Amino acid sequence: MVSINGNLLDNNEAKLSIDNRGYAYGDAVFETIRVNSGSILFWEDHYFRLMASMRILRMQIPMKFTPEFLESEIINLITENGLLNSSVRVKIIINRVSGGLYTPDKNEVDYVISVSKLSTNFYTISEDSYTVTLFKDHYVAPDLLSTLKSNNKLVNILGGIFAKENGFENCLLLNTNKMVLEAINGNVFLVKGNTIKTPPIDDGCLKGVLRTQLLRILEKLEEYQLEEASISPFELQKADELFITNVIGGIIPITKFRKKEYKNTVSRRLLGILNSRIRLGDK
């Protein structure tokens, strides 16, 4: 079942109009959320990012869109799908209501929530190889709109197709300044010695929720020096480790870029700390 504006419908009955602005113009934002046994991970960060994204896109936020209301909508849908005791991937899409061409008639919104079951309760690291390459066909502008989870993700889509056609697990995207920005589905971290580096939001990368969690963890680990700074492609092959983060997969170590192979020692340590915080209820 899915929820459309709070109405629960079977998947085969749920339909959107061809005038839906998210479909017609990409006039929508979304959040992808992980829920473990009815507990929404990092809910506060997801909620405030969603509200900030709506404000940036000049959408009218309904008065009822409180954290408690949206949390209740999510848990209700999970319950109706019989997944309350499972790990679940939740996607919330907020689109401006139909009407107008490029310029909308109104700024009110509709919302859709969908859920699907995940296989593990906590984050794990696979032993499989995970090779990446740079995607150079298109670049991402280093501006505020690039930091949003909007329905305008053509560079990510084309990067995914490129990776699939050329035998890679992922692509690293570049901004128009030719700096490493992110992967097609998550933020990027680089480890060199005791320095851990990730691109700054000003470079145009997504303000990822799991990125935020790791920054909070790393700020308390005195043995590491944390840098939010631009990453040149030339730095990748000098790194000891590279890894990707997102709230569904957790921490995904990159095993190979070009001829360079990487360790995953720091990745595993950080993943252990992250899982411990989740177990203790620090969301």
Rank of each mutant, 00 (worst) to 15 (best):
L9M: 15
A14N: 04
K15C: 11
L16F: 05
G22F: 10
G22M: 06
Y23W: 13
Y25A: 04
G26Y: 08
D27P: 11
F30E: 01
R34T: 05
R34V: 10
V35Q: 09
S37T: 00
S39A: 10
L41W: 06
W43A: 01
D45A: 08
D45W: 08
H46M: 00
L50F: 09
M54V: 11
M54T: 05
I56S: 12
L57A: 12
L57F: 14
R58D: 15
P62K: 06
M63H: 10
K64F: 09
K64Q: 09
P67I: 02
P67N: 07
P67T: 10
F69L: 01
F69M: 08
L70D: 00
S72H: 03
I75T: 03
E80G: 02
E80R: 02
S86V: 00
V88H: 02
V88T: 03
V88L: 11
V90E: 02
I94E: 05
R96S: 08
V97R: 03
S98F: 01
S98H: 05
G99L: 07
G100P: 08
G100Y: 12
L101V: 08
P104D: 00
Y111H: 07
V112R: 06
V115C: 15
S116R: 09
K117Y: 01
K117I: 13
Y123M: 07
S126H: 10
D128K: 15
D128Y: 10
S129T: 09
Y130G: 08
T131P: 06
V132D: 03
V132T: 10
T133G: 07
L134G: 12
K136Q: 14
A141V: 07
A141M: 13
L145I: 14
S146T: 12
L148I: 09
S150F: 01
K153C: 10
K153I: 09
L154Y: 10
I157T: 12
I161N: 14
K164W: 06
N166L: 02
F168L: 11
N170S: 05
L172C: 10
L172D: 03
M179K: 15
L181Q: 04
I184M: 13
G186P: 06
N187M: 12
V188P: 02
F189C: 01
K192P: 11
T195N: 02
P199H: 10
P199F: 04
L206P: 07
G208D: 05
L210P: 03
T212F: 07
L214E: 01
L214P: 05
L214Y: 04
R216K: 13
R216Y: 07
I217D: 04
E219T: 05
K220N: 15
L221Q: 14
E223Y: 10
L226G: 08
L226V: 03
E227P: 02
E235K: 06
L236T: 07
E241H: 04
E241D: 00
L242C: 04
F243K: 01
F243P: 01
N246V: 08
I248S: 15
G249H: 07
I251W: 05
I252A: 06
K256H: 14
R258E: 15
K259L: 15
K260M: 10
E261G: 02
K263C: 09
N264Q: 15
S267A: 11
R269M: 14
G272Y: 06
L280M: 13
G281C: 09
D282T: 03
D282L: 11
